[in-house]
């Protein structure tokens, strides 16, 4: 790591090129996938996974509250769309903002602790939010969830896009995802990001240099919450339904698993993890014999074990290892 805290100076094109390459890969991916709905879902689920990676890989915080923050975004957008018929972009912004507000509160209480205790506190908060959603039947629908969300035409003043076809929606999600990816990449290379990573290595040193680790971690936590909110709002649009299960701790666990599967120390891990996880879960569900016996979960479990035993850096780390091995030869 460089000692200077300046943002790297790069040309506009150099900044944009990885995103363009990603777009060039992701757009055709849509046509390759066996299910057309899956494409958008992979991207949407990669968003909270990205938040998880930002917090774990770059800040050292193990956040088990991602599921509830994701659900807050989904419920906010879902309720606004289903009951108040607001503009789609407005609903997304509201979802992001709401998750941000919740994560400010959550962060305030949790950030004082570190390591496993922090993880468990976020888990407790996650269940608190789940419980509120479950019990507040008049507002959130309780166990019924939110029905009647409609993904329709997005009016943007000059022109409008119909989001109903899966491909259009996929492109819409892809644009947002790439913007987010750019932002996060920029963030971790900024002075702020360098401080975070410095604290991950040694909190004591960061404190000695004069940074207040709690404030920095809190801000990182809130950014993570905002990202989850974006994912949630898009998910409400994607499924046209929001259920309480999104806020349950098992959803948080799922994001964590996706991150670990992909690789926690690199941002692309989110996309790879989410892609492989969703693809596998779906693929295994296709065989009646497997679906009937619930054997998809069995294979998934075996894959987790294999990843931990042999591909510690997740799939990304594994591929990198293989690539480096061949390059050396």
């Amino acid at each position: 790591m460089k000692s200077e805290l300046n943002a790297p100076q790069r040309s506009f094109m150099a900044e944009l090129s990885p995103v363009l390459i990603m777009a060039a890969i992701l757009v055709p991916t849509y046509f390759v996938l066996p299910s057309k709905m899956m494409a958008a879902e992979i991207l949407i689920m990669a968003i909270p996974t990205l938040s998880f990676i930002l917090l774990l890989g770059y800040t050292g915080l193990l956040n088990f509250g991602t599921g509830s923050l994701f659900a807050v975004g989904a419920y906010t957008a879902g309720i606004l769309l289903a009951r108040h018929n607001v503009h789609i972009l407005l609903a997304i912004i509201a979802g992001v903002a709401m998750s941000g507000i919740i994560s400010i509160i959550m962060g305030y209480f949790c950030i004082k602790r570190v390591g496993l205790i922090f993880a468990l506190l976020t888990l407790a908060f996650n269940q608190l939010i789940w419980f509120i959603i479950w019990q507040w039947k008049s507002f959130t629908g309780g166990p019924d969830g939110i029905w009647g969300i409609k993904r329709e035409i997005l009016e943007l003043g000059i022109f409008s896009i119909n989001l109903k076809p899966t491909f259009n929606f996929y492109i819409f999600v892809l644009i947002l995802f790439l913007l987010l990816f750019l932002f996060v990449r920029r963030l971790i290379e900024s002075p702020f990001g360098k401080v975070l990573m410095g604290m991950r290595e040694s909190e004591l040193r960061a404190t000695a240099i004069g940074y207040n680790p709690e404030t920095y971690k809190w801000i990182a936590f809130i950014i993570g919450g905002l990202i989850c909110g974006l994912g949630g709002a898009l998910f409400a649009l994607h499924q046209e339904y929001v259920g309480e299960h999104l806020a349950h701790w098992s959803t948080s666990g799922e994001f964590a698993i996706k991150a670990l599967l992909g690789g926690t120390f690199v941002l692309h891990g989110a996309l790879i993890g989410s892609g492989v996880f969703i693809f596998l879960a779906d693929f295994l569900n296709r065989f009646p014999v497997l679906a009937k016996a619930g054997a998809g979960l069995l294979v998934l479990g075996a894959i987790f074990i294999l990843v931990v035993m042999f591909f510690r850096g997740g799939i990304y780390g594994g591929v990198e290892k293989v690539y480096n091995f061949f390059r050396k030869k």
Binding site: A293, A295, I303, I305, V307
Partner: peptide, 28 residues
């Protein structure tokens, strides 16, 4: 045996995978 002293997240992922494997094997 390979998990001693490893980061918590790997332990969780491994034992969670084990949970799924055992549970679904019993179902089978």
């Amino acid at each position: 045996r390979w998990m001693y002293g490893q980061p918590v997240v790997y332990q969780i992922l491994l034992t969670f995978g084990l949970l799924l494997v055992i549970q679904q094997s019993v179902a089978l």
